[in-house]
C-alpha cells in the first residue's frame, strides 16, 4: 500500500498505545486505527489488523479479539462484504431487458441475470416479473473484482418477498441475534409467532401478524441498543 510519507524527522517519537488501552463495559480492550498491538512473532493478523515491520497494528476501530494465534478487531459498525454462497436480501434498484440491479447494502450492487431469475421470462419482461422497489431473497453466486457480483434465485427457498417487513441490523450483531446453535433466533420465532429469515447482509425478513412483527422489532432494538450497534 502506498502511504506516501512526505518527510520524517530524526527525533520522532514512537507512541505505544496512545491513551492506553481502555476497556468497554464487557471488559474488552478497545483499539483505534494505528494502534500498536505488539510483536507479530508467532501471531497472525486477523480482520482489522495488519502486520508491518514485525509489529501488529490495528487498522480499524473496535474491540480487540484474541483467538488462538489470531489477533483481530471486531468493529462497532461493519459494512457487509459479499461472499459466494451468502444468503442475502436485496432491493431491486433498476433493470434492463434481461438484468436486474440489486442493492445489497454492500459497497457495490449486484446483478441478477434473467437466466438466474425466477422461472421463465421473455426478454424485455423483467419489470413485469419483479419491479423496482421489490425485495428478493437470493444467494451470491460469484464475486469478482473485474465485474459486478452476481446473485441467483435458483435454489431452495429463494424467492421474491411478497409480504411482511424487512429490518436491518449491523452485520456484526448477527451472531448475537442467532445465538448458540440458533437458540436465540428459535426462541424469537416461537415467542412472537413470526416467520423470520436472517440473511448474511444484516437484513431479515419477518412475516406474521402485525403484533408479532412489532414485537420482533422491539426486541431487535434491544439487541442493537444494548451493544450500541444501531440500526440503519
Amino acid at each position: 500500500m502506498n502511504s506516501g510519507p512526505v518527510a520524517r524527522l530524526d527525533n520522532m517519537t514512537k507512541k505505544n498505545g496512545a491513551a492506553g488501552s481502555r476497556k468497554n463495559n464487557r471488559g474488552q480492550t478497545l483499539v483505534v486505527p494505528g494502534e500498536d498491538l505488539g510483536d507479530s512473532e508467532g501471531f497472525e493478523a486477523g480482520h482489522g489488523v495488519m502486520s508491518i515491520s514485525g509489529r501488529l497494528k490495528a487498522v480499524k476501530q473496535g474491540r480487540l479479539k484474541e483467538k488462538g494465534r489470531s489477533i483481530s478487531v471486531e468493529p462497532t459498525h461493519t459494512r457487509y462484504i459479499p461472499r459466494p454462497g451468502d444468503l442475502v436480501i436485496g432491493y431491486i434498484e433498476g433493470c434492463t431487458n434481461n438484468i436486474w440491479f440489486i442493492e445489497l447494502g454492500a459497497p457495490f450492487n449486484a446483478i441478477l441475470p434473467m437466466s438466474l431469475g425466477p422461472g421463465k421470462i421473455d426478454f424485455g419482461g423483467t419489470r413485469s416479473v419483479m419491479d423496482i422497489g421489490e425485495a428478493v431473497l437470493c444467494r451470491i453466486q460469484e464475486v469478482e473484482e473485474t465485474h459486478s457480483s452476481v446473485v441467483t434465485m435458483k435454489g431452495m427457498g429463494l424467492r421474491k418477498i411478497r409480504s411482511g417487513v424487512i429490518e436491518e441490523i449491523d452485520p456484526h450483531l448477527l451472531g448475537r441475534l442467532i445465538g448458540k446453535g440458533g437458540e436465540t433466533l428459535r426462541r424469537l420465532k416461537t415467542e412472537t409467532d413470526c416467520r423470520i429469515v436472517v440473511a448474511d447482509n444484516g437484513r431479515m425478513w419477518i412475516d406474521g401478524e402485525l403484533d408479532g412483527i412489532l414485537d420482533v422489532r422491539n426486541r431487535l432494538s434491544a439487541i442493537s441498543g444494548d451493544s450500541n450497534g444501531g440500526t440503519n
Binding site: P5, V6, A7, R8, K15
Partner: peptide
C-alpha cells in the same frame, strides 16, 4: 501528521 510514526500526509 500520522501520530504513530511521525510521517506526514499533508503539508
Amino acid at each position: 501528521i500520522l501520530p504513530n510514526s511521525g510521517e506526514l500526509v499533508f503539508l
